[in-house]
């Protein structure tokens, strides 16, 4: 899961190349594992017991959820719907997240892909690490969670921290 420095530079360089075409695309992949905050989600024991763990990522104001899929994989997603920002609920039976406001459905199995509804893009997936003790950490996110100004500010803050 860990990216070495060279790979992370490649990711950032690719992101900045896209910025020239569109100011938004540059945000995608902003919290690559090398630059993103590392947040403790919980333990493997807790997850085995409940099947899901709530946490916040990348900031304390942005709810997220880690779940264990039927095939045993542990995955985590932002809980903020990409349509209008309502908090999505996890449905273990269908292994998808469903938005209570406008019924967008996102696959927990397939990288947050939109299965139905008005959401324009995937639910941002959160990269996890499980250490030897069974502690689970969130270490990156595939795209900024919904929320215009807040997101931009959060992104800028992250880059302020990592910029040399």
């Amino acid at each position: 899961m860990k990216m070495n420095r060279r790979e992370s530079i490649a990711v950032i360089a690719a992101a900045s190349a896209v910025v020239a075409a569109s100011p938004l695309d540059g945000l995608v992949g902003y919290a690559s594992p090398a630059s993103a905050p590392r947040v403790k989600v919980g333990t493997k024991i807790e997850l085995d017991r409940t099947g899901r763990l709530s946490f916040a990522y990348p900031t304390a104001a942005q709810p997220a959820e880690a779940v264990q899929l039927a095939d045993g994989r542990i995955v985590a997603y932002s809980r903020i719907c990409t349509h209008m920002g309502c908090p999505v609920d996890y449905r273990p039976k269908e292994q998808s997240f469903v938005c209570p406001c406008h019924q967008s459905r996102f696959s927990a199995r397939a990288k947050g892909r939109v299965l139905d509804g008005p959401a324009p893009r995937r639910l941002p997936e959160i990269a996890l690490e499980v250490d030897a003790r069974g502690d689970i950490y969130a270490v990156g996110i595939s795209a900024p969670p919904f929320g215009a100004a807040e997101t931009v500010r959060a992104v800028e803050a992250i880059y302020r921290e990592v910029a040399p």
Partner: peptide, 10 residues
């Protein structure tokens, strides 16, 4: 990595 390179439009 300069921020200005990442967010020219902003």
């Amino acid at each position: 990595m300069k921020r200005s390179a990442l967010f020219p439009a902003l």
